[in-house]
Amino acid sequence: MTTATTDPLAWLTTLEGVPSSYAAVRDGIDALLRDRGLRRTSPEMTAESLLRGAHASAVLEGSTSSLEEVRGGTGDGVAADSVRLSSELLGLAPSLARSPLQALARIHALAARGSVPDEALGRPRDPASADRLRALSQLLLAPTGAPALLVAAIVHADIASAAPFASHNGLVARAAERLVLVARGVDEKSLVVPEAGHLALRAEYESNLIGYRDGGQRGVHAWVLYAAEAYAAGADASPLHG
C-alpha cells in the first residue's frame, strides 16, 4: 500500500510509454545476451565493449580521436581519461551497490586524475553539488520496482545535468550508467555499449539532457523515453554482433 510513496522512482513507471519501452529493450538485451553471448563470451569481448564505450563517451565529451586511435593508445587527452576510467570501472560494481557515494567519487577520481588538483578528485564542487550527490546515493540505495535500465537512465541524467564535480561530469555520468547495468544484473559482463547508443543519437541525447535539466516532469519523461531508444542502439553496438 505504501510503495508509491516510498519508491522514489515509482512515478516514472506510470508515465505513458515507459513500461512498454523498457520491457521491450530489456527483452532485446536479454535475447542478445542469451542467444549470442552466454556460451561464447570472453574477457576480450568485455574489453572490446569497454573500449568502444570509452571512445564514444570521449567523443561526447569533446574528443576528436577515432576508435582506431583509441585502440592504438594514440588518442587525445580526453580519450586517455576515458580509457583509464573504463579499465577500472567494473571493479566498482560492488561499491556502487553498497556505497554509491564512494563509487561515484572513485569514478571521478579515475577520470580526472591529472586534470584537476588532487584535493578536487572525487569531491563535489560546492555544497549544493554535495547535496545532489547525497540525494542520488539515497535513490540508489532505496528499494524500487523500477527497471534497472530506468534507474541507470536517471543516474546518468542526474549527474550530467547537475555537473557535481569540477570536471569530466559527462564521462562520470556515462560510466555510472554502465555500472548500474552491471551491478543490477542487466548486463553483468558489460557487453552492451550504452555510450555508443548515445553517440549514435547525439542530437537527441544532448537535447533531452537539456530537457531533463530544465523541462520539469515533461523533460524527465522525454529523457527516459529517449534513453530506452539509446539502450537499444547500445545493444546493436555490442561486440556480440561482430
Rank of each mutant, 00 (worst) to 15 (best):
A162Q: 12
G145Q: 15
I159L: 15
G170K: 10
L171V: 12
A153I: 05
D158C: 14
A148H: 05
S137T: 12
L136G: 08
P127E: 11
I159W: 13
P143H: 04
A130D: 11
A157H: 07
L133N: 06
F165G: 05
L133G: 01
L150Q: 07
T144L: 15
S137W: 04
L141I: 00
A163Y: 02
A157R: 09
I154G: 10
A130E: 11
G145F: 15
R132V: 07
D158K: 15
H156C: 09
A128I: 06
A148C: 08
H168Y: 14
I154M: 12
A146E: 00
A135K: 02
P164F: 12
H168T: 10
S167N: 13
L150G: 09
A135D: 06
V172S: 01
V155R: 11
S161K: 09
L139I: 05
A153P: 03
L136A: 13
A146G: 01
R134Y: 07
H168P: 02
F165K: 11
D158T: 15
S161N: 11
P147Q: 11
P147V: 04
A166C: 09
V151N: 00
R132Y: 02
A163H: 12
V155Q: 00
A153E: 08
N169T: 01
L133C: 08
P127D: 13
L171Y: 06
L149I: 00
A142V: 03
A128F: 10
H168L: 00
D131P: 01
G145Y: 11
A146T: 03
S167P: 05
I159G: 14
A163L: 13
D158V: 10
V151D: 02
L150H: 07
A162R: 04
A166Y: 14
L149V: 06
S161F: 05
P164R: 10
L136M: 09
Q138V: 03
L139Y: 05
V172N: 15
A142P: 07
A135R: 08
G145D: 15
A163W: 07
P127A: 14
A135S: 05
R132A: 14
D158H: 15
R132H: 08
R132P: 00
A130R: 15
A157C: 12
T144W: 14
N169P: 07
L133T: 00
I159T: 05
L150S: 10
I154W: 07
Q138S: 15
A152D: 14
L141A: 07
D126P: 13
V172D: 09
L139R: 07
L139M: 15
V172I: 12
A135N: 08
